[in-house]
Design a protein around this nucleic acid. Structure first.
Lengths: 218, 218
DNA sequence: TTTCTAGAAATAATCGATTATTTGACCTAG
DNA sequence: CTAGGTCAAATAATCGATTATTTCTAGAAA
């Protein structure tokens, strides 16, 4: 829910929110690390007020933990939470995909093909950040027309959570291939409106990508 | 996720967050209303910084809409969103109840009986705020041991959203009775570990309470 | 050594004032 | 009249300084 980019001029708080969110997803800060407010202010060259507002948003969003009088911490990583996030993604994205296949129109089909094309063009030279962006876009395109704003919101939120785990995992090439081919299959099943198989496949896809992360977690 | 009461001394920001959250759920502010920051500061007698931090949290949580340089607004109410929230609650609470019935232990059974008892003791003289609190506690007790922190988080969030709609609905006595008896039935089915019927019933329960709100929405 | 307790240092939270942006009234040109 | 533009008032956002709380350190007593 990057709700702040809509209006033209972003405020300092919105800008630092986006920057911090990206840095958190990209693992710039260690899990469990305490974020010193004064240090952050110097690092990002931003005032205290907008910084604190951004930190408050991130805590409410679930990327930081806030303890009264003790500032902000990066959330820990744990196998248990990864399992939780994975299972929730399976359920919610499965549900959303079925709905999207039910409601999606030709415009959706085009967008989906486009997103998949862009993602498949990415290769070993593509920077991780860039790939993650395209990947994110693809999965979003897949479920976009599900018809439920709240479902989409929860899915994005879980995706952000999952990215923190994906980030600590090594880029396993063999699995990478398998995951990539699943993207293609997902498009095919979606265009054929085969919601049963599409749902099974996306669940499998999520489980597989989770397993990659699970290996290197702790 | 009232994550801020844990530590002993709440900060001003945490206190005003909770107060504002309650006031928003209780319909103190009209849907779509713009919240003047200066006015809020005078009303709640609190400084600007903690107030703005609370507003930022509420916006990230989904009870307010934040527009850059244009402050904060109460979210609108719409039939479409109520339908969305209702369907999400059906799916998520249904899922959570099945899991809770699978994992819940004797402690859960006791807590559930207790919560139901307290709720059923409430009568026509009980203040709405008090009843909503007990009702909330009951539904929370029902799904508490589902095993997924994220699922519980989403359910609470949707519950808060739903409460805004419940608040505008009149206290229809006939339906009130039906809803109350469903609470008792839910406890019975849960204790009998009949997850299929329990799931159907909670879905029906949610739909019914949604219909009450739907009538007076717009 | 361990535990407890000042007191100092570090850091989070808050305040009051300032700056930047938007809103709305008024005016003028077409 | 209406459209567009300008200025003043209102209000949101931000800054710099202050206050409150926690954390760290060192010394004293057990």
């Amino acid at each position: 829910m990057t709700n702040t980019l809509k209006q033209g001029s972003a405020t300092a708080a919105s800008r630092i929110y986006e920057t911090l969110r990206q840095d958190l997803l990209n693992g710039r800060y260690r899990a469990g690390e305490r974020l010193s407010i004064a240090l952050l202010r110097d690092t990002y060259e931003v005032g205290l007020s907008p910084l604190r507002e951004a930190l408050n948003r991130l805590a409410a969003y679930g990327l930081l933990r806030q303890e009264n009088q003790r500032g902000f911490r990066v959330l820990e990583l744990s196998r248990e939470e990864l399992a939780d996030i994975t299972e929730m993604r399976r359920q919610l994205e499965g549900m959303a995909l079925e709905l999207a296949i039910l409601h999606g129109d030709e415009e959706w089909e085009s967008q989906l093909l486009a997103a998949n094309h862009r993602l498949s063009k990415a290769n070993a030279h593509t920077p991780v950040v860039e790939w993650e962006h395209l990947h994110s876009r693809f999965h979003n395109a897949l479920v976009a027309p599900c018809g439920s704003a709240w479902l989409l919101r929860f899915i994005s939120q879980l995706h952000d959570q999952f990215d923190r785990y994906r980030r600590v995992a090594p880029r396993a090439q063999e699995l990478r291939h398998q995951l990539d081919s699943q993207h293609q299959e997902l498009v095919d099943l979606a265009l054929n409106r085969d919601s049963r198989r599409a749902r099974s496949l996306i669940e499998e896809h999520i489980t597989l990508s989770s397993e990659v992360a699970m290996r290197s977690c702790r």
